[in-house]
Design a protein around this nucleic acid. Structure first.
Lengths: 325, 325
DNA sequence: AAATTTACCGCAACCGTTTGCGGAAATGTT
DNA sequence: AACATTTCCGCAAACGGTTGCGGTAAATTT
């Protein structure tokens, strides 16, 4: 069976297509009687307008694109959930594409976005993406692009990011406030700008006031191994730059049968899911993908409303106290 | 700036629109010389065909819909990642919609799918969804619907599910094999068919051979509370029907300072992420969202290829031994 | 050189909507 | 009763492509 069209409805009712169209949109030109006849038949036939035709005609797609390295990620999936929610509330659909952190797939995804004439794009660029020309092309076509999390270095684009410096600073000062004396700090890959930002803010705040050992881990496993290794020097606190690091650290602590927070304190930067998995819950500085999503969406709506104002937004970072400090 | 159209290209080159269209599609009617002129200009102008126009004309959308209660879920996001991957590989786009487990939003999402004339739908229905008429309407319109995970009770539809019975049976026999004597088994909401299936298979396998206490929890918090409550009766094993339950149980165990597996053994049904967070890692029966996604996609392609064969597929379930038993 | 075939391209209809404009019938005004 | 309004609706073009069919000029065959 085929989808009902205006033509079919008009045929049955002996009306013109335009009259049916107007009736369904409650146009004042159409009499109430006719409107009733039309809407009733439309309902009976389960009429749903063809979005493609509308988009073609109106040149307005009501479709957002979202490109992300991977959906399966603590941070991203809450970001996505958030954007999807808002999109629906505003009558937009969302086309979600994964780049697999591969610049080539990223290009292919952008192509898809352009072919579908998206109204706007949320993009988290792949780690090795150097050429952002394809993204800028969208801007030329008056399609707003909101970069999030991993953003390009150029200045004339909208970006929303978690507050890397602020969150690391907040974690560091919490450690100082709690009168801790010896910190093991685990960071991710040094090549990532997010790592460098958090690291510099963290060390700057600690400022040699207490003992600090900085380590870099590329995975949860590495974090676990490093923690086990450095636990022998008896730190009183472990700081984890990310959720992935945290999971490795917690495994090491459980393996060593250490009690949190009596034997050792733990603090992390996280979106909040992982820290709540443990008892006591881990104290963390929140970098909410959910909130960042809302922020990104607001930024998008502003751009669509015609604001050419370039925004570089960061979500606020707040300390959530668990029982781990 | 506007997107380039065939008309613009044809205007510049002094050709007709149809010639340009054919040239770009490498149609034999067009001379090599003309093809070259056209493709060169198209590249220079960054031409991307308007998907809406194509879909309107060809009545073929190359778009899949996917409706899920929430993206932010261990299981679903790996399922989604998997389906997205396959879709892209087969030149389909994917529109992902969250229902928030709300039947009303579900209806709205289905409407969106229909308006966008999706080529097929992957659907995990909301917990309280009773009326699946709107889903069947899609089938009437010759749009394949593949239900996954939470599937309706009716028979004439394609379903892919994790092997509920098999996984629960596997967990139960593992418990028996390990000579455990007293099991606390935590299940989810009884109204869910997934719960009932797992429960019946589990109890059937345990078969009163050892002591068994069955409890139902609607959330991680409830699971934690229930576990704490029943820990006093000294079970030697806790079985967790799902990841959510598992997180609650583990918190209770950590809170009680019990040692896994010496004081108490733990086994779960899971896709594997959460169990690996703890030390020792939790033994679990794997229900992979990733694999299920591949399965669902295959089923979709079969349906699109014209197969009216109704399939009820289940992904295999394998035991992954951690150190918790 | 005439007839036939081949190569290449354009015309026009169509997909399902929206919308400016014009027109007939009904109603209201003198 | 003649005119001016208002009410209600249809015509047709447009959005950006695809595609069957037909036509002309060149190439080939007789």
């Amino acid at each position: 069976m085929n989808n009902t069209t205006l033509k079919e409805i008009s045929g049955v009712l002996g009306l013109s297509i335009s009259t049916v169209s107007r009736a369904l949109k409650n146009h004042p030109d159409i009499s109430e009687k006719t409107k009733l006849r039309v809407t009733e038949l439309a309902n009976a036939l389960d009429y749903e307008p063809n979005a493609n035709a509308i988009q073609l005609r109106t040149n307005k797609s009501n479709l957002f694109g979202l490109i992300v390295p991977s959906i399966s990620n603590f941070f991203y999936h809450s970001f996505i959930a958030s954007v999807e929610e808002e999109s629906r509330r505003h009558n937009y659909s969302l086309m979600i594409l994964q780049s697999g952190d591969d610049p080539l797939i990223e290009i292919a995804n952008l192509k898809l976005c352009r072919q579908n004439r998206i109204s706007g794009l949320f993009a988290c660029i792949a780690t090795q993406t150097k050429n952002i020309e394809p993204f800028l092309k969208l801007k030329e076509l008056d399609t707003p692009v909101i970069f999030f999390d991993k953003v390009p270095d150029i200045s004339n684009c909208n970006k929303v990011c978690v507050a890397d410096e602020a969150s690391a600073t907040s974690a560091a000062s919490t450690i100082l406030n709690k009168k801790k004396k010896k910190v093991l700090a685990l960071f991710g890959n040094y090549n990532l700008s997010i790592t460098r930002k958090r690291l510099s803010a963290f060390t700057k705040t600690i400022d040699n006031k207490i003992k600090l050992s900085v380590q870099h881990a590329n995975s949860a496993e590495e974090a676990e191994a490093l923690t086990l290794e450095h636990l022998s020097s008896k730190p009183d606190t472990v700081f984890c730059m990310s959720d992935e690091i945290l999971t490795g650290v917690m495994k090491a602590i459980q393996r060593s049968s250490l009690k949190v927070p009596d034997d050792i304190a733990v603090i992390a930067i996280s979106n909040g899911f992982i820290p709540r998995l443990y008892f006591p819950e881990i104290t963390y500085v929140e970098t909410s993908g959910y909130k960042l999503g809302k922020l990104a969406f607001t930024c998008m709506m502003n751009s669509l409303a015609g604001s050419t104002f370039i925004q570089e937004l960061t979500s606020e970072s707040i300390l959530v106290e668990g029982g781990s400090m």
